[in-house]
């Protein structure tokens, strides 16, 4: 039973990582690609780490996997935000079919 749960989590993680990678290729600009990247990290890596810790049961590996998941969870948004902000400040344009850019309107 526990093994089945672990395999399901690992499968979801692998699927999310694959789909997120497809998103990084398909989406048109930096900002949209960061959305796809979030799918890879949260849906892929963190769910896989949870799956691995379910598989392993209660051990020091589980503790480490959970702490790695926690730190990924805390640091990934900071990195994404920094990249997006730097891109916008250095004038990377939004995709040509973007509907609105309130940030630029406000500053100019």
């Amino acid at each position: 039973m526990i093994e089945i749960i672990a395999y399901i989590l690992l499968g979801i993680g692998a699927a999310c990582a694959l789909i997120g990678a497809m998103g990084i290729v398909r989406f048109p600009d930096v900002y949209n690609r960061i959305h796809a990247q979030t799918v890879v990290v949260v849906g892929g890596v963190i769910v896989m780490l949870l799956g691995a810790s379910v598989f392993e049961g209660l051990s020091s590996y589980t503790l480490k996997a959970l702490i790695i998941a926690l730190f990924l969870f805390l640091t990934n948004p900071v990195g994404s935000h920094a990249i997006a902000r730097a891109a916008h400040k250095s004038g990377v344009k939004l995709w040509r079919r973007s509907v609105v850019d309130k940030l630029k309107e406000g500053k100019s």
Binding site: Y31, I34, H35, A36, T38, V39, V42, G43, F73, L74, N76, P77, V78, S80, H81, A84, R85, H88, L103
Partner: peptide, 14 residues
């Protein structure tokens, strides 16, 4: 801001 960035589809820029 972190919660918004962590949910795919929304990304806090500034």
């Amino acid at each position: 801001a972190n919660a918004i960035t962590m949910t795919p589809g929304t990304l806090s820029v500034d």
